[in-house]
Design a binder for these strands. Sequence first.
RNA 1: GUGGCUAUGGUGUAAUGGCAGCACAAGAGACUGUGGCUCUCUUUGUACGGGUUCAAAUCCCGUUAGCCACCCCA
Length: 424
Amino acid sequence: MSFSPRFSALKGLQDILPADSSLWQKVETAAKEVFSRYGFQEIRLPIIESTALFTRSIGETTDIVEKEMYTFPDKAGRSITLRPEGTASVVRAYVEHHLHTLPSPQKFFYSGPMFRYERPQKGRFRQFHQIGVEAFGAASPFLDAELIAMLKVLLERLGLKGVNFEVNSIGCEKCRPAYRQALQDFFAGRLEDLCPDCKRRFEQNPLRILDCKVERCIEARRGAPRVTDFLCAECKSHFEEVLSAITLLNIPYVINPDMVRGLDYYTRTTFEVTSERLGSQKALAAGGRYDRLVEEFGGPPTTGIGFAIGMERLTALLRENEVAAGAFPDVYIAPIGEKATIKGFLIAERLRTKGLWVEAGYDSSSLRSQLRKADRLSSRYVLILGDDELSSGRVKWKNLVDGSQGEVEIRGIEEFFVAALRGR
RNA sequence: GUGGCUAUGGUGUAAUGGCAGCACAAGAGACUGUGGCUCUCUUUGUACGGGUUCAAAUCCCGUUAGCCACCCCA
């Protein structure tokens, strides 16, 4: 006796089965169509990059880099990492291929798997999928507004309701130091009220304290200085223009001054789309500006902005409104006898050239059991093919939906079904 | 990384420490030229490893996995 191991997908990784893949395709198709109206074109990138690419862009002290990356040595001992997000690779490609020499702004979208080694829970997986967009070389607040609008158009087109748009500005390298200092001054007298994590954040990244969900930290930050009060003149007017542009587009939003990004590269505008129906991991899509990143990677000073949508979270929401739309064959061919099986095999092939979904019985079992099989598959039509039909050259068809039936010449069979199934 | 809850056929569930059962699903047949109904039969299970006990699905320990939350984020 042999022992058969039972394999299962790795923790936090999941299979997308046919019952779900149609919904994923629907999202991908809609995204591609909407993005193209705004001039975004697809870019396809490797899912492995050198580790340094991510530590440099996302930030050495972020949680993603510190504890969540899938990092391995390759056979030559180089440190490589499964991408935890998409922006770093797009920026790398932009710089590597000198895309700044093409007319600005350059706009890209991508989709695919991302990897973070986290404890799985609702809406959070170790391999998850994002559809993201990035635009380079336009600093105008209208671009920020355009991206937010594009995201809204896509979500509406998918029939998603009840989502909230949150926006914020976290300033630039000029105004952030002053704000950081103000926060440290504010929390210096309240260190004892903070949770251990926030005590550490106080030194490393005081902005993160604003994000903490521990009750006492929420209490302790009451009255803390707001980032929007510390923006420099340029950042302030940029933010105001973004807000007035999305107001012109009638996009309802709330300013969330506590929205601080977990990735270090963000500057100025940040935004997020959330849904209360998602549970604890309620961010459905998020993005922002990163005006320094291209330069950081050795390119010319070039502004950038983008967002990413979490596919698992989006499809989870869409699944709620989805009617279980199954997929059904157009025609089931029920042969009786060996000769009929061969004939049916050939007829199936002819009908498929007309774009029909045809299933053919392979083993000429009883007509009754073949009809039951066709019924099981929810086929619209059955074609009955026996000795009588073969000799007369006419076959019987039956509509399984309304029970009607009749006969048709074998040689005219394509035309018959194309007409019968028009508008299916 | 931390915590809580959970684990019985494909799915949903039952079994005082004492014969692992039911429903649905799936497959075949009753029914050799007309499906859906009905009936019959069949397949498939106590996550894994220890321990306690005459006896463990049941109690204990460990592991693994899942879910949810923290953390963090899409």
